[in-house]
Design a binder for these strands. Structure first.
Length: 644
RNA sequence: GGGCGCGUAGCUCAGUUGGAUAGAGCAUUAGCCUUCUAAGCUAAGGGUCGCAGGUUCGAGUCCUGCCGCGCCUACCA
C-alpha cells in the first residue's frame, strides 16, 4: 500500500519535471525522520537546482504549484531549503488498508535456495543454525512476495569429515557395522559422533601415521563395499535424520536433499568435466607445482591472483569445487542429467522431503531448473563460490552466472566469556582475541540442541511461575515457542556481514530487542480480543460501525495516524529487505512494530473506552496490528504462543 | 603481499541508491502494577560516527591515503 503510493508520487514528479523543464532526473522519495514533516518528502528541487542554476526553494514552489492534485495526497508544502513535504489523505489511506487489493502471484521462474549443508558427521552447532535460520527466513521472505521457491540442503556424505568419523569407529574404536547401527539407535548418536570426531582429529595430530586411515576410509566409502562403506552410510544417514529433527524444532524444512554420493555415482561430475574441457574452461597443467592437474586459470575468477585453481588432482580425483560446479549446473538444468529421487520423510503437515537416489525409485516432483539460485554459505567460502560462478561463465552460461548468488554471512564465533562458561581453557593469545572460532575438529562449539534445550528451560521457569495452573505439556509447548522465537530472532537481528560473538547472556535474554518481546506484543493484542469475548461482548462489525468518515475523524489524531502508518509498512519493509538480501531488516521492522503496538497498548485502554466510535476504531487498530505482527513473525519463522 | 569485511554511546548492534536534530537494545539512574498480563511503559545521562584529506548545497554513508581487527588466499571440504 505505502509502497505503491510512493511509486505513484515518484512517477508523477519525474514525469512532470521532464515535461516542464526537459530534465530527466531520477526522483528520490524519502520518508522524513520527523513526523511533523508529513509522510513523504521529495528533495528533487536540490538536484534540479544544479541543472537549472536556480535556487532550490524557487523550483520547489513551482513544482508544488504546477503538479496539480495527486491521488491519495492531501497536501504538499515546502520546507527547509527546498524540500517538498507531502501529507497523505488519511481516510483514503485507511480505506485501502481495509480493502486490500489481491496480491499478484509471481509468474516468474523458480528460485532455488540452498542452505544448511552440514557435514553429516556430528551434531549441528550454532554456526549451522545461523545458516539454516538465515536461509529459511529468506525463503519465507521470497514466498511472502509470491515467489516460487525450492529449498535444497546439500549432503556431503562421502567427504573427509564423514570419513574421519567412520575411521574413528572402525580403527580407533574397533566397532563393527552392527555395533555402530546399535549405537545409531541411541538417542544422541549425533552427540556421540561429535566427541568421536574430535577424538579422531586429535589422534591424527598425536599420531600422524594414522592419517593413512583417512585415505583408506575414503577409498572404502567410494568403492561402496565393505565395512567402511557400510559404516559410512550408517553415520551419514542417521546424522542427516538428526539434523532434520534439530532443524524442525526451529521450523526449518526442506524440499530436496541432493547428495554427493549421487553426484559421483550418476556421473554428474563426468558430464561437467566434459563440458569444461570442451569449453576450454580448464586445462591440463604441464609444469610447476600443479603439474598433472586440470586447473582453472586464475584470471577467470580473480582479477589479481596468479594462483590457478586445481579442479582435478594429479591422481585423477575431483576437488570439492569441481563437484560444486556440476551441482550448480544441475540446479539451472544445464547439465543434461537429472538425479533419481525417493521420498525421505513427510512432516506433520504433509510436506515431503525428497532425497536423491542412484537408481529409479518411482515418480517424483520436478526439482532443479531454477532461474535464480541463492547459495547460503558463510563468507569464508567466497573464493570457492567465485570459482563456481567462473565455471558457469566459462561454459557460456552468462545469464545463470549472474543469477548465481552467494548469500554470504559472517561466522558465529564464541565470545571469550562464553568459552569460560563452557569450561574451555584459552591460550594467552586467544584470550586477547575479540572472539574464538568454532571448530568441529576440536569439538569446540555450542551444540544446537543443547542451546535450544537451555532456552526452553529458561523460558519454562518463567512460564511456570506465571501460569502454574496450566498443564506441564502446555507450559512446555509455550516455552518451546518462546525459546525458538528468542533463538531465531537472536540469529536474525545481526546483519549478514556481522560476526556474531556468541554469548549465553544475550542469547538467553527475553527482554528488549528479542523475539519474545515481539511475541508478547502479538499475545497482548490477542488478549484484548479474548478478554472482550470473556466479557460477553461481540467483535463489532467494522464495515457497519466504522464508516470512512469515522475513520477519518479518528485518524485526525496524530498518534493514531502515526501508529497506523507504521503498521501499514510491513509489506514495504519485507520487499525492501528482499531487495537488500537482508533478513535482519525484517527482524528490525518486527521489533519496531511491536514497540509501536506496546506504546499504543499502554496509552489507550481499549475495552474501557467509553466513546463507542473510538472504541470500535481502537479495536480495528488492534486487529490490524495483530494481523501485521502475526504476518511479520511468520516470515521470521516465529510462532505466536496462546499466552505468555 | 593480494582479495573481502569490519571500526558508530560503557557493552552488543542498526543506519536503504548521500538529506533535515546520528538511532535501538543491554547496562546505569529516577518513576509507573486497584486498569486489556510489568517478558511491558515513561524519562534522564551517555557520541570529535578509527584518523587525515577530498568530492558538494549537504558525508556515518561516496573517493584517496593511513591506523587497528577479522576472514580468505590447499592437489581439505
Amino acid at each position: 500500500m505505502f509502497q505503491s503510493l510512493e511509486k505513484t508520487v515518484q512517477r508523477a514528479f519525474q514525469d512532470h519535471i521532464l515535461a516542464r523543464y526537459g530534465v530527466a532526473i531520477s526522483v528520490v522519495i524519502e520518508q522524513p525522520k520527523q513526523t511533523g514533516f508529513g509522510e513523504l518528502s521529495v528533495p528533487a528541487a536540490f538536484l534540479l537546482a544544479k541543472h537549472l542554476k536556480q535556487p532550490p526553494k524557487k523550483i520547489a514552489s513551482e513544482l508544488v504549484a504546477e503538479i496539480g492534485n495527486l491521488p491519495g495526497v492531501a497536501a504538499m508544502e515546502i520546507a527547509g531549503g527546498g524540500y517538498i513535504n507531502i501529507r497523505l489523505d488519511r481516510a483514503a489511506y485507511a480505506e485501502v488498508l481495509r480493502h486490500p487489493p489481491n496480491a499478484d502471484v509471481s509468474s516468474a521462474g523458480k528460485i532455488v535456495v540452498e542452505h544448511t549443508n552440514i557435514n553429516p558427521n556430528k551434531a549441528a552447532h550454532i554456526g549451522h543454525l545461523r545458516n539454516a535460520v538465515l536461509g529459511d527466513t529468506f525463503v519465507r521472505m521470497l514466498r511472502s512476495g509470491g515467489q516460487r521457491v525450492e529449498v535444497q540442503n546439500y549432503i556431503d556424505n562421502t567427504g573427509v569429515q564423514v570419513a574421519d568419523v567412520v575411521a574413528g569407529f572402525h580403527f580407533l574404536e574397533k566397532k563393527t557395522p552392527d555395533e555402530v547401527r546399535a549405537l545409531s539407535e541411541e538417542t544422541r548418536f549425533d552427540f556421540l559422533c561429535w566427541d568421536l570426531y574430535a577424538r579422531t582429529s586429535q589422534n591424527y595430530k598425536d599420531n600422524p601415521e594414522t592419517l593413512a586411515w583417512r585415505a583408506e576410509t575414503l577409498h572404502g566409502i567410494e568403492s561402496g563395499m565393505g565395512d567402511l562403506a557400510e559404516i559410512g552410510h550408517l553415520v551419514a544417514d542417521s546424522i542427516v535424520q538428526a539434523h532434520l529433527k534439530t532443524m524442525l524444532r526451529l521450523g526449518v524444512t526442506y524440499d530436496v536433499l541432493p547428495r554427493e554420493s549421487e553426484i559421483l555415482h550418476l556421473k554428474f561430475w563426468a558430464a561437467a568435466y566434459d563440458l569444461l574441457k570442451q569449453a576450454k574452461a580448464i586445462y591440463l597443467e604441464m609444469e610447476g607445482k600443479n603439474a598433472g592437474c586440470w586447473v582453472m586459470p586464475a584470471a577467470a575468477f580473480s582479477a589479481d591472483s596468479e594462483d590457478n585453481k586445481v579442479i582435478v588432482r594429479s591422481n585423477g580425483t575431483v576437488t570439492y569445487v569441481g563437484k560444486d560446479i556440476a551441482y550448480q549446473l544441475w540446479k539451472f538444468g544445464l547439465l543434461g542429467k537429472d538425479f533419481f529421487y525417493r521420498k525421505l520423510i513427510a512432516y506433520d503437515d504433509g510436506h515431503e522431503v525428497w532425497v536423491t537416489a542412484d537408481h529409479p525409485a518411482g515418480p517424483h516432483p520436478d526439482f532443479g531448473h531454477a532461474t535464480r539460485v541463492y547459495n547460503v554459505i558463510d563468507v569464508r567460502q567466497s573464493y570457492l563460490q567465485d570459482v563456481v560462478v567462473a565455471g558457469l561463465k566459462a561454459l557460456g552460461a552468462k545469464a545463470q552466472a549472474e543469477e548465481s548468488i552467494h548469500f554470504s554471512y559472517e561466522m558465529v564465533a564464541l565470545s571469550p566469556r562464553c568459552c569460560v562458561d563452557l569450561g574451555i581453557d584459552l591460550s594467552e593469545e586467544d584470550r586477547k582475541r575479540p572472539y574464538i572460532e568454532v571448530s568441529g575438529r576440536k569439538g569446540l562449539g555450542v551444540k544446537a540442541d543443547d542451546l535450544i534445550d537451555k532456552l526452553i528451560e529458561t523460558a519454562l521457569r518463567e512460564v511456570a511461575s506465571r501460569h502454574p495452573e496450566d498443564s506441564p505439556e502446555k507450559q512446555r509447548h509455550i516455552s518451546s515457542q518462546i525459546a525458538i522465537g528468542a533463538l531465531r530472532y537472536f540469529l536474525l537481528k545481526y546483519t549478514r556481514p556481522t560476526v556474531i560473538a556468541f554469548d549465553f547472556g544475550e542469547a538467553l535474554s527475553f527482554e528488549g530487542e528479542t523475539g519474545p518481546y515481539v511475541q508478547y506484543a502479538a499475545v497482548r493484542a490477542r488478549n484484548i480480543m479474548r478478554k472482550m469475548a470473556e466479557r460477553g461482548e461481540a467483535m463489532p462489525d467494522f464495515t457497519a460501525e466504522l464508516p470512512r468518515e469515522a475513520v477519518g475523524r479518528q485518524l485526525a489524531s496524530e498518534d493514531f495516524w502515526q501508529m497506523l502508518l507504521a503498521a501499514s509498512k510491513a509489506d514495504t519493509a519485507v520487499e525492501k529487505a528482499v531487495a537488500a538480501g537482508e533478513p535482519a531488516h525484517v527482524a528490525r521492522f518486527a521489533f519496531q512494530l511491536a514497540q509501536t503496538f506496546n506504546n499504543f497498548y499502554h496509552q489507550f485502554p481499549i475495552l474501557a473506552e467509553p466513546d463507542r466510535e473510538k472504541k470500535v476504531f481502537l479495536l480495528w487498530m488492534t486487529e490490524y496490528f495483530r494481523l501485521q505482527l502475526d504476518r511479520t513473525l511468520a516470515i521470521l519463522g516465529i510462532e505466536v504462543p496462546d499466552f505468555m
